[in-house]
Design a protein around this nucleic acid. Structure first.
Lengths: 140, 140
DNA sequence: TGACAGATGAGAATGGGTCGCATTTACATG
DNA sequence: CATGTAAATGCGACCCATTCTCATCTGTCA
């Protein structure tokens, strides 16, 4: 934990952000999360380990961390934004429309094709996100 | 216009929706739109040709038309949803982060790869959307 | 044409997200 | 290690896109 703590603090400092208990809390929660919590869930979990964090600060912290590139905001349809630690390998998300489960998917091939496509139009990708709404195939 | 009008009406009826003046207005506006208007813009334009349409009805109509598959809702980041007539060929959207311009892009190849990727996981795509935030390449 | 389920208008309500401001805190400096 | 100061926080008010409520109106089908 100490190692992680230092790591978080360094990451914050490197991003030009002050190291505060609230930011450490939010960061550690996202680090340990196995899912993709929304702001409300981050807030609830943060309060368990911090008690004093406010809703507004969670939002401000999430915005700051996103700005710093430490986390990513995922905009799903018709539901509040979710967050995840910036993944090492870029990936997209597939939502099982029946269960709501979020599955991470990735394809180097697709990433490359997309990058080429955009380049051909004279642009360069700043970031991108693919959201697939899918349903489990019946015959399985 | 008469041909189109009939076409709209048929499409509505086929979707099990009553044919009302408001729905026709909204549909025609999206049909003629060269851009991707949001609900507010659809409302403003609709009022010019209909006068009586209300905001609530625009939202309800957009929801109904989306449900019927006649139009598509585009969820961009940090801004209200935009709408477009369901395109013949599926395509994604690229936003120029400096100008806000929305550019439609498509790649059969990517669509196919994506479909295979999802199928390999035992799912089938219900719908999907890729949003690319990009910037014009400097050296051009 | 009449009945009536479905659609509409107007405005209130909802809910995710942001802001203003008084207070607290991180941290650079002496 | 005390301290000044800008940045961060907590709290509640606020914003804005979207949805809901309900009284009224209108397509549609018999």
């Amino acid at each position: 934990m100490t190692a992680e703590t230092t790591e978080f603090a360094d990451a914050l400092r490197a991003a030009g952000l002050r190291v505060t208990q609230q930011r450490m809390s939010v960061l550690s929660i996202l680090m340990e999360a196995q899912d993709h919590p929304n702001a409300d869930e981050v807030f609830t979990r943060a309060k368990e380990i911090d008690g004093s964090v406010s809703f507004a600060t969670v939002y401000r912290t999430l915005a700051a961390l996103e700005e710093a590139g430490l986390i990513q905001r995922l905009n799903f349809e018709n539901e509040p934004a979710r967050f995840e630690i910036t993944p090492v390998a870029e990936h997209d998300h597939m939502v099982d429309i029946d269960t709501g489960e979020v599955i991470e998917i990735a394809s180097e091939e697709i990433n490359r094709l997309r990058q080429e496509l955009v380049a051909r139009l004279g642009y360069e990708i700043v970031n991108q996100h693919t959201l697939i709404r899918a349903r489990k195939k019946p015959g399985r």
